[in-house]
Amino acid sequence: MHTSPPATVEGVAHENPALLHHFATEEQQKNAANLGMWVFLATEIMFFGGMFFAYLVYRYWYFGDFGAGSQSMNVTLGGTNTAVLICSSLTVALAVRAAQLGKQKMIVVCLILTMLLGLVFLGIKGVEYHDKFVEHHVPGPSFYFPGHVPGHVNIPINQQHAQIFFSLYFIMTGLHALHMIIGVGLFAFITLHAMRGRYHPNYYTPVETAGLYWHFVDIIWIYLFPLLYLIDRSQ
């Protein structure tokens, strides 16, 4: 075998308990985790992308009914939720920054704030779902969505097409909410570790990668908000 002296000295490399056996250096481990999360987010783009594609097709076909459906959404609640998520993105970014600077308490505070904001988002989402349920806007046998297409008083809403809009609304926001729940769970786990002081400027990979995931979930909402709440609002 063409071996020259090993590139890393094992004894030195394994001083950090967070360094797993198969990595040579902390740098390599961190880079692997970081790339892994980015690649995972790429798969998430395609996962949500499939839904955006379905949305695009039906919005193109049934624009009027989609506009009517969209106008039944509560923009105040949706807009508030957008703001809540943006705030939570800030707190995550600050948590990572605190970890970079080694401010142990600050990490915990920022992560708890993030989870609270996440729960506020889910709560508001729950209120919206409840309203839709009360109004019979949930797809199914009791679905009822009377009215006319925005801007065309003499064209009634096609119930089936409107039902497709609400189906997509519930699936897209539902899967987004599921991602939020997973994110809150991740942060709960990481907060426990942060309380025990596991993260320091040389090792904060979990905070960073979970943060990337959270920002991604935020970005999905940034698109969902105008696409679901703001179709044809000028009518």
């Binding site: 790339l35 980015w38 987010l41 798969t43 395609m46 992308g49």
Partner: peptide, 9 residues
């Protein structure tokens, strides 16, 4: 990674 995911979409 980001750009290729967007290209595929």
């Amino acid at each position: 990674v980001i750009i290729s995911a967007l290209c595929w979409l």
